[in-house]
Design a protein around this nucleic acid. Sequence first.
DNA 1: ATCGGGATTGGC
DNA 2: CCAATCCCGATC
Length: 213
Amino acid sequence: MAAVCAQSVEELAIEPPAAARRLLGATLWSGPVGVRIVEVEAYGGDPAGPWPDPASHSGRGRTKRNDVMFGPAGVLYVYLSYGMHTCINVTSGPDGVASAALIRSGEVVAGLQTARERRPSARSDLDLARGPGNLGSALGITLSDYGTPLLDPSSPIRLELNSPVADAAIATGPRVGVSSAADVPWRFWLPDSRAVSVYRRSPRAPLPTTRSA
DNA sequence: ATCGGGATTGGC
DNA sequence: CCAATCCCGATC
């Protein structure tokens, strides 16, 4: 049993973009609701670490909020966005190094009825877990779920890794809404899914870099 | 103790 | 385009 968990942790104890890609196609479970992950973003850590990332919540060092990002991989990092939305991350990288993947969008593959009850304003089933705030709602996640081990079979919130998706089947682009490092292409999604959210650049971000010589 | 900014969303 | 809403990090 412990060997199975350890093996899964190993799969996510890697650099942020690789870990984020690995999460595509995985299923996130919360009670009866299962969501197939179709859109993710990679986030690194502080300047002293191997993956400095000013856009990351851990980009300026360890705090109470980002503490779990510095721990082992496969743990739930939840934060409150704009005072009302709970957004979900899966921690990545080796223990002691900060990084995580924001789960941006997914398709509800189980527990449709419960998901609909949790997201009464959703106009279609495709919108149930589209966008990080909506995905958090569909799964019924709250701040009290912070630090939940996702690879523990007895956990109320579980991550079920499936076969890795080939890189050729993954689309890449800048992360949504970040005001710094706005051109770093650390957003990954499955282009065949209609549940992927729309890209929006932060109004506070500097103008996009062009590749003109 | 207080101040201000968001890894967003949905409605106008 | 813009308000809603509140936790948390930074600063005094």
